Computed example of a mutant assay.
Amino acid sequence: MKKFYKSVAVSQNEAGQYQILLDNRPLKTPLKKDLHLSSQEIANLIAKEWDQDVEEIDVQSMRFMSLVATYIDKITGNEEFVKDQVLAFIDSDSILFFSDEEKLRVKQETSWAPILKAFKDETGLSYEIVTDLSIPSQDKEIHAFWKSYLSDNSGEVLNAFQYGTSLIHSPLLIWAYRHNHISLEELYEFALLEELHQVELWGEDHEAKKRRQGIKQDLEALCAYIDLC
């Protein structure tokens, strides 16, 4: 998209919400809704994405803009549908599938097992893990926990879980980051554990590396968003 503005600023409206101004005109979402924010920090991050000294702007690379616009355009008013999208990953969470290959299994035990233990310690609930391609059916108490968890937290948190699970297929990893059990770097490494293991064995592929770099940037934005929610 050709850059159509010269100045970018953050202002606060009469209601105390923050908005981004492009040449003093309020920025809208893709569906032309008002982009009003309660967090000045998030507003500043979006403004930084738009404040590029280039002739052509890449809207697809604006991850904070995407997160916030998705919340306004698609999450608000559709919370139950979005919850169901996250809940669809409860039985098939990516860190429930352990390998029977010894070296990879050791990495999974070291990385994933502590998250499952932390979840059990905090909730009293145990996940069933598998070592084949079958999808386990988790206890109804686990499903009930997640329904309550997603309902009790803010819409922004629901947005973060929807974005994260669609990216890495693991509500548990997003939960672990949000509750300070893992770092951003661990979130990335644990989400791509098997793929990174294959890189160690067989070497790097340029296109796969480029894709992983994109995932890491997505996770960096997601974690910053979670920290500010």
Rank of each mutant, 00 (worst) to 15 (best):
Y188E: 08
Y71T: 09
E49P: 03
L201W: 05
L104P: 03
K2C: 05
T165Q: 04
V59E: 13
I174A: 01
D53L: 13
I142D: 02
A88T: 09
H206Q: 12
Y149N: 02
K28D: 06
I135R: 05
K32M: 10
Q213H: 12
Q108Y: 07
D73K: 05
D53K: 11
S151V: 07
A160V: 00
L67D: 02
L173G: 03
D23N: 07
L45A: 12
D84Q: 15
M62Y: 13
L45W: 11
F98I: 08
L150Y: 01
A15D: 15
L67S: 05
D100Q: 13
E207R: 11
S137L: 14
E109V: 12
A208Q: 13
F161W: 02
D73I: 11
L167V: 05
H181T: 10
E41Y: 11
W202Y: 15
P114F: 12
D218I: 02
W146H: 07
V82I: 14
W146G: 04
S66N: 13
K28I: 08
F97H: 04
E141R: 15
S61T: 09
Y18V: 04
K48E: 08
D218A: 13
E80R: 13
D91G: 04
D84K: 15
L228R: 10
S166Y: 12
V54C: 11
A47I: 07
N24W: 06
I75V: 15
S126G: 07
E80W: 11
S39W: 02
Q138D: 01
L22I: 06
V199Y: 10
R211I: 12
N24H: 11
E122T: 06
V106E: 14
L219D: 04
D227S: 07
L150V: 02
L27R: 04
G155T: 01
V8G: 01
P30Y: 06
L116K: 06
S94Q: 05
H179S: 08
D100E: 15
M65Y: 13
T29N: 04
Y127M: 03
Q85E: 14
T76W: 09
V130C: 06
E80V: 08
F89Q: 03
W146D: 04
S38L: 10
W202S: 12
Y163N: 10
Y71S: 09
R25H: 08
D51E: 08
L172Q: 00
Q138G: 00
K120N: 08
G155S: 04
E200V: 09
Y18F: 15
V8P: 00
S61F: 07
G77A: 05
A224L: 12
T70N: 14
S94T: 09
A47L: 06
I142A: 02
A160E: 00
K140Y: 04
E220H: 03
I174T: 02
E49S: 07
D93C: 10
I46A: 03
I135N: 00
Q12K: 15
I72G: 00
N180Q: 14
V59W: 10
I168V: 15
T131N: 14
K107L: 13
E186A: 12
D51A: 05
Q138R: 01
F64I: 06
S170I: 02
H179W: 08
L193H: 01
L87N: 03
T131E: 14
E55F: 02
D227G: 06
L96Q: 03
L173C: 07
D132H: 00
P26G: 00
F64S: 05
L150D: 03
K103E: 13
S111D: 13
K32T: 08
L192D: 14
E128I: 15
